[in-house]
Design a protein around this nucleic acid. Structure first.
Lengths: 217, 217, 217, 217
DNA sequence: CATGAATGAGAATTCATTCAT
DNA sequence: AATGAATGAATTCTCATTCAT
């Protein structure tokens, strides 16, 4: 069982305990495999109470997604200090992102794996967060362009490219994180640096129009 | 329902029909949410036949993973022609990758999302495929370095850097593919181009020693 | 259907109802042929409740065995009054045994037939009860020998002979009980008398050294 | 797999192979737990052939019972030589019985455990065999009475008593056999002698009217 | 605020049995 | 004489969800 079975706690506290238990369970077992029984047990309450506060499994999962998404985006925002040069801002953002996800593996699993793997009510929830992060990167690019005294790329063209870039970055980051964790002699910081390098060069090229051009065929 | 109704087919054929149905169902619903009933229905056979040929849900899922992994790696291999310059080879590989995943969205969902989201028997299956792709990319990077007549960096340092790059590239490709599949208006070729651009610049920079260096803090 | 319909009973009560239904069903149909559906119906509850309280078919069967074994051994013990002469004690024990098995034919079928017919988790359960009965009989035989003021045979030889007799007696009682239960016109008392007669004569002969000796061949 | 998969054998041979496999499987797994698949496999034939020759699981089981019952009764008859004194005949009969059942544990399990544990079509089958054995013992008692120049007990009274005795004997024999098998220092022959003693003394008493009488209570 | 008691609906898996060849 | 292909009908077990207190 999880928390000590304290009787009579204010609702807000109980709800957080439930969400803690739910995030942990969903993250480790997956949405379908997680059972309300296990979650209630882990939270140290009875099942009916979970239903009373959070309505249904679907709603509970949604609540998890929202809480974890909010936590992640604020962690990233909190890590970045306006006024720094753009590359430094990107670096700090990446670092905050990696730190937070590493410290909340279950929350990250919920956001990245479970929420995307289980159909429509949930995928939409994550999209909001994703868009927020993309917006943040987009803005950084604008800043970088200004610093370089260059015109930012026309928004239309940029949109897809930046979104794709964000996807690529997250995927690369995940891969690198897993790889760094399992390869001796590679530190998290080194992995982050590799990624930053990768990203910064790519960004630079894109903004300069110095693109690699596909052959005709 | 899927195949034309029923009637006495040789085992090999039936098995493929079942795998087709299973990949589709697993890819769309997820491992847990997919029911053997639905799969059997979609394959146009009765459930017992599915069990007779493929033993269990777990085995069926594993068979799906293996088939799709094999299909993907051969598609990539088939796309690449030895003898071309390295950038061209990378481009062809990426294109083959994105094309294949775009044409087999369910298969890709099985490999990228479902197999990784559902515990141990399955995650290991995908690892093999992943390693094959990483090895392929690693080798391409080596070729590229040779072509550029540049001095290879001291082996120790290089090894990790190249491996990290390969990991990052594959991870980025995986994420991008999923994104391209679910984002209307993004073609496989565009996705490939985005990534290629991104990657090539990063590769170039790194090989030139023009690396971005993390601040001290 | 068994109990009066349904409605909110304390767990202990429900569990006994379930065990009643299970013993009846297992005893009549056999372990494999009995279905959890039928048991739940007979108990007047839904299947999930049976699983909630008793875990699995195997556990349910084990619980039946234990309950019936305990009931039988206490019935036998309760029937015997210390201080009586040995033949009288044996007689009371046998009577209690046959009476109890006659009144609980399903329980006896579970113990004697089903538990022994269905593999390892169960056979072991019955062994404990059996050993208790054998110990009880063994001790009675010793008492009888003392009462007869006869020289006990040299311990080494005696030990095996007494143990063998006790085994034989218990086995005979077990078979007779099953037979009496299924043969009309045979009362528990008659069965007990037949066996007592049989046993007492054999015991007397053996203790007098009037043994039947196998031919050489 | 059992027999080498010989093609094209005459029906009679195949049938015996099937019955061999069936007896083994039924004896070890029990009637319900034995699957036609396993039996067919063990016999080295396809399932449809089993159905072609033996119709159904029920019929197959019945055929097993009949074959094993016949084998057991003829073994006992063959062991006994008319003309010997009655005690000697009983001894030989017991010996033949123990020998045969020890050498055919699966067949004996089918007859003694499975057939009696699984409802009506089968129980009746065994009854025939049982009656034959009881008749054999009854006749021996008559012989013994004649030898002792005593009147045999009036048939009516005898019937139940003798049947009960037969039951008790079988039960005792089984117990002893199991006990002898698991207790070091006890040979099968000793066990048989213990039983013979037990039985012979009991028989003598019964025929003499020297019965142990239950108290009034 | 909190829970013990209870269930409808569905999940995976197995099995005896039949057809068409 | 023999079999590969196929299924209807159970069976065990799980789960999200609700009452009554």
């Amino acid at each position: 069982m999880g928390a000590v079975k304290n009787k009579r706690m204010p609702r807000a506290v109980r709800e957080q305990q439930m969400l803690d238990a739910a995030v942990r369970t969903f993250g480790q077992r997956g949405y379908r495999a997680a059972s309300m029984d296990e979650i209630a047990d882990l939270a140290g309450v009875s099942k009916p109470l979970v239903y009373l506060y959070l309505n249904s499994k679907e709603d509970l999962f949604t609540a998890c997604i929202r809480r974890e998404a909010a936590a992640l985006t604020s962690a990233v925002r909190a890590g970045v200090h306006q006024g720094l040069p753009a590359d430094r801002q990107l670096w700090e953002g990446l670092r905050a992102f990696f730190t937070h996800t590493a410290q909340n593996p279950d929350g990250w699993a919920v956001l990245h794996l479970q929420a995307r793997t289980h159909g429509e009510p949930f995928a939409t929830e994550v999209t909001a967060m994703r868009e927020e992060l993309v917006a943040f990167v987009t803005q950084l690019i604008a800043v970088a362009a200004r610093e370089a005294h260059r015109e930012p790329p026309p928004p239309e063209r940029a949109e897809h490219e930046v979104a794709g870039l964000a996807e690529a970055l997250v995927g690369a980051a995940e891969s690198l994180a897993a790889w760094a964790n399992t390869t001796p002699g590679v530190s998290a910081k080194q992995a982050a640096a590799t990624l930053m390098n990768f990203a910064w060069a790519g960004l630079g090229n894109l903004m300069d129009g110095r693109a690699w051009n596909p052959p005709k065929s």
